[in-house]
Design a protein around this nucleic acid. Structure first.
Lengths: 210, 210
DNA sequence: TATTTTTTCCGAATTGTATCCGAACAAGCA
DNA sequence: TGCTTGTTCGGATACAATTCGGAAAAAATA
């Protein structure tokens, strides 16, 4: 950011630009959005973009940051509720909420997530991953019997990344081969089965050694 | 493609352009690759790009097609071997091969996969998905006891998409929280556990109803 | 309030990139 | 060889990104 907005008016301008970025991007895709489009939608002159952003790329960066921040803001308050539920219910709940979140405002965020890579999304993804890790940790602490599961970091890595992508990809597909609800159910089952299987294994081992 | 190359010389030109596309893209990322860069690397004039491609975008499209085709060419011959292995071994083998494939040629394909969305990769992904579905189907046929698993389409959707993404993301991360081998092991376990758990369930049901 | 200083906004001018096009060159063919 | 078709090229054109200098608005000062 070339300069920081000091006055309220300027902050509104910055905000309008970011909003306009989402709108333009949702409509034309990232490659085809021009600075003029963004400026027009935001109702500001083209020059104003460069008052607060070094270049077009940086507008996208900030958009990605905001998207991640909003996603985290969605998840954080759900944590206390989720950790008390059975694993399958927790997964279902989380994914349904995430779906609704992505589809707000004409699915603006969904379209953003589709082009996530373009936006250098990856660099900004870390906080979200951390939040989800935290959710997993909290969940495990509320269900002490699950703490015996092996390779928890690896498995949560897989579930988090695989889960995010499977959902985003599904919501992006024009004619998905399966329903969203089936997908959610599948993910819930996958995770549910895994934990159950692991716990059964542990129990068996415990029985052996006793 | 505006025109088809008829002479050998022209085919070489087209090929050089596509190769140059991969090199330029791996070096600068998709947003920052210019037509001049591609032309220079390919050793042709800028004008030549437009003899066989309608625009820069289409070069990327063709690159994506080639990437998918090459991936399929990697997987196809592995199928007969994979279907005879235990599920965990099959997953391990497939992923190790895929990793090596992505890291050929200075990890050119890996960098391509990172920016997959940008390239309109999704549209071209279908054949790959189909191939993997076919692999799953073949596998199931060679292990008839697994055919009783419920929701096979959903679960293979999740495993295929989640698996591809988890691997690509992992290989892209500068400092991944887990080893690649751990990731592979985790995926193998996830899939292994799931099938085992499902089969245990089925068996129990069978016992009940008899 | 009048004046000065700071912040914000703008859009024409500049710069760079994608794309087009017609001349020049090479290949196939009679 | 002369003719036709395919191929290559790089300057010309069009359009998008970015810059810049000054006008307008807001804040600070007196």
């Amino acid at each position: 950011m070339a300069r920081k907005p000091r006055q309220k008016r300027a902050k509104e301008t910055v905000n309008a630009i970011i909003e306009a970025g989402f709108i333009a991007m949702a409509e034309h895709g990232p490659a085809a959005t021009t600075t003029r489009q963004i400026a027009d939608i935001a109702g500001v002159g083209v020059g104003s973009l460069y008052e607060y952003f070094d270049n077009k790329e940086q507008i996208f960066q900030v958009m990605a940051e905001r998207f991640v921040a909003d996603t985290i803001a969605l998840i954080q308050p759900l944590v206390p509720t989720l950790v008390r539920k059975p694993i399958r219910d927790a997964v279902r709940e989380l994914l349904q909420q995430f779906k609704e979140f992505l589809q707000q405002n004409d699915a603006r965020y969904l379209k953003c997530a589709r082009h996530a890579m373009t936006l250098g999304f990856e660099e900004h993804l870390e906080p979200l991953q951390k939040t989800l890790q935290e959710l997993v940790t909290q969940y495990l602490m509320h269900h002490p019997e699950t703490l015996t599961i092996r390779n928890i970091p690896t498995m949560s890595y897989i579930m988090i990344n695989g889960g995010i992508f499977a959902v985003v990809r599904h919501l992006s597909e024009p004619a998905p081969p399966i329903d969203f609800d089936e997908l959610v159910e599948g993910l819930a089952n996958m995770i549910g089965h895994y934990t159950e299987q692991e716990m059964a294994l542990i129990e068996r081992q415990g029985a052996e050694s006793s």
